[in-house]
Design a protein around this nucleic acid. Structure first.
Lengths: 209, 209
DNA sequence: CTAAAATATAAGTTTTAGCTCGCAATAGTA
DNA sequence: TACTATTGCGAGCTAAAACTTATATTTTAG
């Protein structure tokens, strides 16, 4: 086990044939991560599941980390597409609507691929290339902060930075935990109550007394 | 790399000599986990750092997982000693005091060994023997739930279970994130503001409107 | 003092994961 | 068709980590 931190693709696939090889590899990595976790996701096994030779794997990915990074990228992009969109839309809305929207979209985001999300959340720190995740989190913060700033008059903010931190942390933690550990709280009729409750939590915190 | 899930000690150390060996091993494991992470914590290296032969290691711990489990146990016990104590003390206090106490003790608990806590939080899912952690979390829930039930008249609770979930998740996430990722929020004079803010968040959620 | 029980040692075995490399097959091009 | 570039293959190399075992040392107890 040599630890190389290189995570960039070795060569970029130009023909259709190779592009599908790359796809199969990322797909297989995702499946194995979900079903068996990071430790069992050996490059040999990934290649086997992808129906591709180990040699081909290393033609496109210089290391196991690179493969995982690719999986992370894909997932992160899906999440950020959803969330950014919603945050931008909510920018002009009053806090009652925006808060509710914020909570809803956080749930949606966690529902994109809950199992993968869980595995990644537990193991990302060990993979290089966190930059994308980091960049995304920062973007989320920035959007929330910008919202708070724009709606300063409706809100009780002593410290913008702290408030943004609290909001993002709280909503992320609650939706993450609900989707991954307490799916019963989000089943059918109950889901509404959960959203109501979290929204109330946020509004109680933001609103002027 | 064979994966055995056995995490119980092989034999219990009876002489003073062997007890200090076991101690040195747990201590070394902790240090390596903190400094280099789970992956670099090989049994050979742990034995070396502990100043003990690899043979002795396997005399008391049947696997690497067992060693990590011992570290987790120790840390968990320290945390639960602190939190249980505080929760019991707060049981009779009105929500204003109890909430503040709850937040404070959560910070204290995370400050016991922040780095170790971070590493464990990221890697626990991969180790067997989560039972202790789970048991502890459940106990925390139970105490919070009991508090809410006892103070039903001061509080706006539609769903006890949901409310306990929200409280525990929120306070754990905020203090965890603050201690590990935003220590600036807890530096000297600012710490008070953080506690105030989180307490306000909780009370806004609990209090009847 | 001595035998047995407990503890400590480290060389060495086994397993497995990451990765390379030389060669084969396929696709694009003229 | 022939020639080149791209892609695919998988046996096998290397290193390292988990773990065993035969042996040596220390402690306990009768």
């Amino acid at each position: 086990m040599t630890y190389k931190l290189q995570t960039n693709p070795r060569k970029s696939a130009s023909q259709e044939r190779s592009r599908s090889t790359v796809d199969a590899l990322i797909e297989a990595t995702t499946r194995i991560l979900i079903k068996e976790g990071y430790d069992r996701a050996s490059t040999n096994r990934i290649a086997e599941v992808a129906g591709v030779s180990i040699g081909s794997l290393y033609q496109y990915f210089p290391s196991k980390e690179a493969l995982v990074a690719a999986v992370i990228d894909r997932h992160t992009q899906q999440i950020s597409a959803v969330t950014r969109n919603a945050l931008v839309k909510a920018a002009a809305r009053p806090i009652e609507d925006a808060a509710r929207e914020f909570v809803s979209v956080a749930i949606d985001a966690h529902r994109i691929n809950p199992k993968l999300h869980g595995v990644l959340a537990e193991q990302i720190p060990r993979v290089g290339r966190l930059e994308n995740i980091e960049a995304n989190v920062r973007e989320g913060y920035a959007l929330v902060r910008a919202y708070l700033e724009a709606h300063r008059d409706e809100i009780d903010v002593a410290d913008l930075d702290l408030t943004a931190f609290v909001l993002v942390t709280v909503v992320e933690a609650l939706t993450h935990a609900a989707v991954l550990r307490r799916p019963d709280l989000l089943a059918d009729e109950k889901a509404g109550r959960f959203v109501d409750d979290v929204t109330r939590l946020i509004l109680g915190y933001l609103r002027k007394q």
